[in-house]
Design a protein around this nucleic acid. Sequence first.
DNA 1: ATCTTGTTTGTGAGTATTAACTAACTATTT
DNA 2: AAATAGTTAGTTAATACTCACAAACAAGAT
Lengths: 193, 193
Amino acid sequence: MELTERQKEIIEKAVELIAESSVQNLTIKNLANAIGFSEPALYRHFESKKEILATIIRSFENTMNGIHEEIEHRNLTGIDKLDAFFAMRFRYFTENPDWAAVLMCEANFKLDSELTGMMLDMMKHHRMFVRSCLQQALDHHQIRNDLAFDHIFVMTVGALRLLVTRWTLENHQFDLVEEGKSLIQSLRILLKS
Amino acid sequence: MELTERQKEIIEKAVELIAESSVQNLTIKNLANAIGFSEPALYRHFESKKEILATIIRSFENTMNGIHEEIEHRNLTGIDKLDAFFAMRFRYFTENPDWAAVLMCEANFKLDSELTGMMLDMMKHHRMFVRSCLQQALDHHQIRNDLAFDHIFVMTVGALRLLVTRWTLENHQFDLVEEGKSLIQSLRILLKS
DNA sequence: ATCTTGTTTGTGAGTATTAACTAACTATTT
DNA sequence: AAATAGTTAGTTAATACTCACAAACAAGAT
């Protein structure tokens, strides 16, 4: 799981290439050219193209785990936890916009059923975390209880997801962190009990 | 723009193949095999692979235009118009689940910049329609006015989009029309003034 | 009825290009 | 002398697409 500097450089460039258009743009040749060495050199650092994609998923998972840990350290509950989580996510995406473009679109990993599985697992983790926060918020009467739980979930996550998608399609022309904060504020107003 | 029966069959199969995994699964060979004729036979009906993808986008656009026309016939306003629009969309997706999977993911058309442009245009149209409905709803005081317009938009569309995405990922294991209706109901409750 | 002619829709055999990946070798550092 | 990280020159398979040809069918003229 420890990556060498060269490996980090490779997956960074790979993410760049995928973000530029799509996974169809990630070829060994393109990737090697982007880094500035020959195709076979790539195979000194990764077994296969699939392994590169798998590493991208694992790296992102690692980052998200880091965010989760930091969140747990802060002893927040319910809606404040969720708030902090999304704020940190937006900050990460702002610093790594290509990663946002690549990972918001699961189609990029449909090359292989194993990769698709990894992607679904990650999404499940994310979903469970958000749901637990929302459940906690409900339990603490931080949010209204006249709505189906699933609807609250889908509105919250759907709105925030779409914000990121728009930010990507509009070439990062607005401040995701600020807009995100503001959107979460609106969600809090709507959902408060 | 008029398609022959054979052409309709071809794009239907093409959509099936893309939905099955992704656009990477759409090759001339796969498509010809799925239909049951040889590769060159395809070129009797479409100039190129790109033309097949463009036809998919245009067909969907046509369907959506049909929905828009029918909506206009009903003389609905604001939130009722939006309601009817999404209900019809969900009905269409239920009857054509593969089309939902293919068209909810713009990455499937990043093969070519022209296709990407067509896709963005279609999304823009969609966005403008929804925004006009929401603006009308605001003007008629059907929805609360203490929230940023963009936030209302992103919550509404984001929630409904995510519902479709989940429905696709979960292999259509719930009734999209019913769940959609129920979600719209919740949105109306939240947003009413 | 049949011959001619043209159109439509298919075929088998091929093209050029590009994909992921490998083998054998070399320069550099440890 | 051994591991590391690169090279050139390949391989094999798949890609989108083309070409020359053929079967099927539908008029229209004889």
